[in-house]
């Protein structure tokens, strides 16, 4: 079981490395953001797996947090890419 989990963790980490390649490579910012988003997902997996490994439920809080942040981050990035600005003062104008 433990070996399986370790293997899983290594695989996830490798995935992240692959995604990192996408971040480095680009070519457009959007690609990087998508990759970052996916890294966030991989991070969630990693945290989940790690908490099984260290056998502690205290890290599970992180999962939801990561999900939230990854979502907010993605939205912010997309708004930035779209308008160059995140916050609009008054959208009705």
């Amino acid at each position: 079981m433990t070996y399986f989990l370790w293997a899983a963790i290594v695989i996830v980490v490798l995935t992240m490395v692959a995604l990192l390649y996408r971040i480095v490579k680009g070519p457009t910012p959007s690609d990087r953001v998508v990759a970052l988003d996916t890294i966030g997902v991989a991070l969630i997996c990693l945290v989940g797996l790690l908490s099984v490994v260290v056998d502690s439920s205290f890290f599970l809080e992180i999962i939801l947090l990561l999900a939230i942040l990854s979502f907010v981050g993605t939205i912010a990035f997309s708004k930035f890419i779209e308008k160059g600005d995140i916050i609009t003062r008054d959208d009705s104008r």
């Binding site: 939801l64 999900a67 993605t74 997309s78």
Partner: peptide, 28 residues
């Protein structure tokens, strides 16, 4: 329950995020 909530959250937001991202990129 946090994990379940997390699963639910991901279920809601992930596709929306992907959608918004693609759309913005297209407009950009």
């Amino acid at each position: 329950p946090t994990i379940l909530l997390g699963i639910l959250f991901l279920f809601i937001t992930s596709p929306v995020g992907g959608h918004i991202m693609s759309r913005s990129s297209y407009i950009a």
